[in-house]
């Protein structure tokens, strides 16, 4: 596997992590009324969106290399 492919895999796993932490944050807020967990979930959710944008921007550029 090349660095290109491993990077794409890494970003996809990172996006899954951000989604997991986002769901965890909402769950913690619902069960324990933890505002800080909700904030953390929000940070990860928006980071995940950033990573999705990066993946969509980066993937087409990979073909040039």
């Amino acid at each position: 596997m090349s660095l290109k492919a491993f990077h794409v895999l890494f970003i996809i796993i990172s996006i899954l992590l951000t989604a997991l932490v986002g769901v965890w944050g909402v769950h913690q807020y619902v069960v324990h009324e933890s505002g800080s967990s909700l904030a953390l979930g929000g940070v990860f959710f928006f980071s995940g969106l950033g990573l999705v944008v990066y993946l969509l921007w980066y993937l087409p550029k990979l073909k040039e290399l």
């Binding site: 660095l3 890494f10 796993i13 990172s14 997991l20």
Partner: peptide, 20 residues
């Protein structure tokens, strides 16, 4: 540089599993 990048991605991936 590519093989260093592969190693670096692995190290980062380990953290992605360690964190949760």
């Amino acid at each position: 540089v590519e093989i260093t990048g592969l190693y670096w991605h692995f190290v980062d991936l380990v953290w992605i599993f360690l964190f949760p």
